[in-house]
Amino acid sequence: MDSAIIIETVRSVVASSTPLVFAGIGELLTERSGITNLSLDGSILLAAMAGFAMAYVSGSLLLGFALAMLVGALIALVVAASSIYLYQDQVAVGLVLTLLMADVSSFVGLRYVRLPGPSVPSLSIPGLSALPWVGTALFSQNLLVYLSYLLVLGVWIWLYRTQPGLRLRSIGERPEAAFARGIPVNRMRMVYTGIGGALVGLAGASYSLCVKLGWSHNHTAGMGWIALAIVIFGGWHPFRVALGAYLFGALKSLGSLMQPVYPSVPTQVFQAAPFALMIVALLLVAGDAAAIERRLPARLAPLVRAVFQHGTPAGLGRRFEQG
C-alpha cells in the first residue's frame, strides 16, 4: 500500500478511537477509586443523544458537550451514591441504568433522529502537523483528538506524579488504609465517579458531534461495553488503556478495509468481530502473568509483564464503611 493511504488510515483510526479513549480513561478514574460504573453503554447513548440535541437546538457545540458531560456525570453519581449511601450492588445498579438509559435515549431522542447537525471542525496544529509521517496522522486532527492526548498524559501525571493521584490510587486499593491517613474515601469516590462519568458523557457527544455524526436509535450501542473491556485489557493504566482503544479502532478499520477485499466473507462476521475480539482480548489478559513468565525465557519477561500484568484495584466494587 501507498504510504499516503497508511497515513490516512492511521489518522482515521486515531480519530475514530477518540471517544473510546475518553470513555476508557473516564472509567479508569472511576474504577481506580473503587467504583465500577457498569452503566457506560447506556450513559454513552444518552449523552450522545443529549449532546446532539442540545447542539442542534442551541447551535452551540460547547453547550452540547457540556450537557453530555453533565448527563454522564449524573448517571455515574447515581451508581456511586446508591452503593455508598444506599448499600446497593454497583453491578446491579449499573446494569439497570445501562438498559434504562438506552430506552430513555430512544424515547427522548425520537425527534432528533437523522437530522443534520453541527460537527467539530478539524484543526491542524501548525508545526507539529508538518512532521513527516506522524504529522498528518496525529496532528492534522480535530480538537477532541488533541484533548484526548492531553487527557491521557494528564491522567498519567496525575496518577503517578501528584499527591492527589497517589490518594486516588490508595482509595481504590485499600480504602481502610486511605481513611486512616485522613482521606475522605467516600467523598473522593463520589468526586472521581462524577469526573469519570463526565468523561464518559464526553465520549458520547464525541460520537454524535464528531466521529459518527447525528443521532439515531442505539446510535453507539455496544461501545460502552467495549470501553469497559478496554479498561480491563489496559490494566487500569492510562497509556495501556489508550493503546487498547487505538488497537481496537485499528482492528475495526482493518475489518472494513478487508470487507471489499474478501466479498465472500459474510458482512455479519465483521459486525460481530469487535465483540468476539473483546472476549479474546480478555482471555489473553486473564492469564496468570507470573505463571506464564516462569515458563518462558527470561528475556521475554518484560514483554509478558507488559501484556499480562494487570493491576485490578484491590478495593474495586467493595463498599467502604467509614468510622
Binding site: 499527591q163 497517589l166 490510587r169 486499593e173 485499600r174 493491576g311 484495584p313 484491590a314
Partner: peptide
Amino acid sequence: VPALSVLDNFALGLHRGFWQ
C-alpha cells in the same frame, strides 16, 4: 496499601501539597 511501593506508602497522607 500492599499494591503501592514503600515510598508511595510513606508519602501517602504525608503532606497536602500537589506534586509528590
